[in-house]
């Protein structure tokens, strides 16, 4: 009976194998799992109706006067026989539900991590999301921006800047590729020429490090 959920379980294995990255949304398997639950729900209903019909039939026979204890026992046995199948299908539905919820949650966690670490949904990640997930990312992005912004409910601080607490306010960085001139808070415009070394504020350097323009030489932040 392990066959019942084998396909759906591949969703979870896929996510674990991706190791923190976002694999393409597996719509086919999700749809199949949903169809499976629907057909099982139908089977359960049919089974219950059949069992009820049978029970009523037996009750009527008993009322006609020839009901004995033997038949009442037989009635109980039949319900146990029917219950087995119903429980199997019901548990399978619950299991499928848990697999699907776990799948959604693992993917959502992945998107949240992307928002904190890379700030935006890059094209190669975006093409792996389902429409609902893109919508989720947009809403999460909005909520986080509102919280960090200067609006009515905002705290006016960018929380994604220091994902690990800095030891020092400054950091030594080397420029990996030319990036034109940038004006930093402590100086006039600085030309970022490939190979040159600068001493920058962590908050100003971090963004450029993530873009791959700078490399941290003396890791403080």
């Amino acid at each position: 009976m392990a066959e019942l959920t084998r396909r759906a379980t591949t969703l979870i294995k896929e996510m674990i194998a991706a190791d923190g990255k976002l694999p393409p949304y597996n719509e086919e398997v999700v749809r199949q799992a949903l169809q499976q639950t629907q057909s099982y729900a139908q089977i359960i209903q049919d089974l219950i109706q059949a069992a009820q019909a049978e029970q009523e039939k037996r009750q009527r026979q008993q009322q006609q006067g020839d009901g004995s204890t033997d038949e009442a026992d037989a009635g109980n046995a039949t319900t146990a026989e029917d219950a087995g199948a119903i429980i199997v299908y019901h548990e399978t539905i619950l299991k499928l539900k848990r697999i699907l919820l776990n799948y959604m949650r693992m993917r959502a966690d992945c998107l949240i991590r992307v928002r904190w670490q890379q700030r935006m949904l890059r094209a190669e990640v975006a093409e792996n999301t389902s429409p609902a997930e893109s919508e989720f990312f947009k809403e999460y992005d909005k909520a986080l921006n509102e919280y960090m912004g200067t609006g009515e409910n905002g705290i006016g601080m960018d929380l994604t800047l220091d994902l690990t607490p800095p030891k020092d306010a400054n950091v030594r960085v080397m420029v990996l590729r030319d990036h034109g001139s940038i004006t930093f808070s402590h100086s006039a415009s600085v030309p970022l020429v490939k190979g040159s070394v600068h001493n920058l504020k962590c908050s100003e350097a971090e963004h450029l490090v993530r873009l791959g323009v700078l490399q941290v030489l003396d890791p403080n932040c």
């Binding site: 026989e81 087995g84 199948a85 776990n102």
Partner: peptide
């Protein structure tokens, strides 16, 4: 997810009742 996968382990069972439709 680990707890979810671990529950797929197969266990030998014996049916105590006859079960219809299965």
């Amino acid at each position: 997810p680990i707890s979810l996968l671990s529950e797929d382990a197969m266990v030998p069972c014996e049916f105590q009742h006859a079960v219809r439709h299965l």
